[in-house]
Design a protein around this nucleic acid. Structure first.
Lengths: 115, 115
DNA sequence: GATTATATGTAGGTAATCTACCTATGTCAA
DNA sequence: TTGACATAGGTAGATTACCTACATATAATC
């Protein structure tokens, strides 16, 4: 059926930017935190996230830098740029308008008897 | 940028089924009503809707029948089936869970100071 | 007579996400 | 000590949803 995956469509960028707004994160951490904060609804796949991050970096929405973890493991951290913050605001506005419009259609027939 | 089109992604089927739940409609009418009820946020393209309707009919989610309009024009009406109603309920549940999860991520940092 | 609205449709393209794979290190249990 | 699992980053190719652009035809309007 492959219906579950597509409901996410178009909003992954917004969610990732939103997480990076609170603090700098590395890829694996983004996947974990998104899963936690969404109460296990979102489980980003690496094949989704890493190309997405590379694209955001190419477009100047995020910067990246390497940092060593406690255990000598190197992590690639991403930081939101001013441009990225602008994109986030735009996407959040679109999200608000979109959900409002969907709910107008869904609530039709329940709220209004004379539609 | 092509960002506006993708925010719709995955939910067009739900919206179309929802409209057909209220009454039987023909394709052109679905486009008009969806535009009206969403306050002009959704403008389905014929290249999106007609193939979608054909797919729903193939899957037994809707039935179709021809009917003459006042002006002798033939319209192809679509009617929601029991199976289609089941799909609609499933999609509405997914939508509710999905928007709730997105809002959990978006509200983070505003509601909770100690995240 | 020309344009616009109504009405249905197809072909081909793009973009977002997925599946499925690869590499590599750290940790823990058998 | 080896095997499994978690951590960490990555790519190639497929799938899917929706779009653009086109084609067809009738009715209404200018």
């Amino acid at each position: 059926m492959a219906s579950e995956k597509n409901i996410i469509s178009g909003n992954t960028t917004m969610l990732v930017l939103k997480l990076l707004e609170t603090k700098n994160m590395y890829g694996y951490q983004i996947i974990e935190e998104l899963s936690n904060k969404s109460e296990d609804v979102f489980h980003l796949k690496t094949g989704t996230l890493y190309p997405l991050l590379h694209g955001l970096e190419n477009d100047g929405m995020v910067n990246s830098y390497d940092e060593n973890a406690d255990n000598q493991r190197v992590r690639k951290y991403y930081q939101l740029t001013g441009k990225g913050k602008g994109l986030l605001e735009k996407k959040q506005l679109e999200w608000t308008q979109y959900t409002k419009a969907v709910n107008l259609v869904l609530e039709e027939g329940e709220s209004y008897a004379f539609a």
